[in-house]
Design a protein around this nucleic acid. Structure first.
Lengths: 208, 208
DNA sequence: AACACTTCAGACCACATTGGTCAATAATTT
DNA sequence: AAATTATTGACCAATGTGGTCTGAAGTGTT
């Protein structure tokens, strides 16, 4: 499977992946239709089953794809020298948005996986690919002293993380609905406004 | 439709609603199966189509149900005398959790609706039921002076809102997966820890 | 232009599932 | 015991299912 897939024209492969992500993201495995997948991908039935032995194999491939892709891109683009945690998390948020804009179905499908698998299963899958990634993201070269020390550090991190996630979710939803082309600089500008607020609130000396 | 539905035994009606919410929440309209719905609701095919003329009518009913139910319960249980915004939002979060625990499919189905409808459509549906509700939730009898005035109020509200939403999402997910019975007091305790952090960060004088 | 080889199409299949109906039964009320 | 209401599930034509297979179209080499 693997070898033959590599040879597939990448533009066409992405069309298949996107179509399949979308179908599996919006239907349970049994109800997801390979007919729909080929129709939306603009390919023939025969081609799909030429590259994937059967429906299950396609699904397995996608499941692996969403993690692998995210991890690859993050590791490739992240700047480990960044010492400010807001910029670190911001970087990751932007990287994720880039991936989502290339593979729009990846979010919905990701949630479907997340619903089915246990939290540990997912953590293990990711940790297997990149050991210790979670810890590193929040700590490697990060200057933790900037945080006020009268409030629970872990909770703060969580709030920051959630804020970024929700903000990105909202922006992507907006784009998907309005059909307006994604404008990164605009989104990043909005992100910075939230960062300002959080810096003032969570960093030492932010209180004037 | 309406009249005949009222007479339906409420326990059985909830079984149908929950089963249907689940099926429509996990499959596109076309793929959602009435056969599955009756099977999981533990009723016969005939009965479903006795109470709902057809699939579309059942779907429309659900769509209305999710908004109506949430609004009814919130308006019924909310304490408008509360002046602290954290407690206000906390109240709503708890109320939502109660509804979700009674109708577990309501969240997933809600997201499906949210994906399909425009933001304005949704706001209008809710505002039609309870005019000005959004504004009231965040302002009615709320003492806004407690907030630091060096940071953008609207952004802070948004962060608080998002934090509660994510926290609840996470907790409900945890319960759904682990199968452990929902323990409100425990969850509320956890919520209070986040409130502590946010109070210190966003209120005046919180910085010591 | 002839060959070999890979990429792709889509008609085809046996079978499962679809939304919805309806006559018969069970439960409840009068 | 009669009348009314609530509920069942076998049944239907129609559509959709995952997957196969034959052969056409494309590509590169000689």
């Amino acid at each position: 499977m693997e070898e033959i897939l590599k040879k597939l024209d990448s533009e066409k492969r992405d069309r298949i992946i996107n179509s399949a992500l979308d179908e599996f993201g919006h239907n349970s495995y049994e109800k997801a239709s390979t007919n729909n997948i080929v129709k939306n991908a603009g390919i023939s039935k025969g081609l799909l089953f030429h590259y994937f032995r059967n429906k299950q194999e396609l699904y397995n491939y996608l499941e692996n794809f969403v993690f692998q892709k995210m991890m690859d891109v993050i590791l490739e683009e992240i700047d480990w020298n960044e010492s400010d945690i807001f910029n670190r998390i911001k970087q990751i948020a932007i990287i994720k948005m880039e991936v989502i804009s290339k593979y729009p179905g990846i979010e919905t499908f990701g949630k479907v996986i997340y619903e089915k698998k246990s939290i540990n299963e997912i953590k293990m899958m990711i940790e297997k690919m990149v050991p210790d990634i979670y810890h590193q993201i929040y700590t490697k070269n990060i200057d933790l002293n900037r945080f006020r020390d009268d409030i629970d550090f872990n909770k703060v991190i969580q709030i920051i993380q959630w804020t970024f996630e929700k903000y990105v979710e909202e922006q992507m939803e907006l784009i998907k609905k309005s059909g307006v082309k994604l404008d990164f600089s605009k989104i990043i500008f909005g992100m910075d406004l939230y960062i300002d607020v959080m810096r003032k609130a969570f960093y030492k000396g932010g209180e004037l």
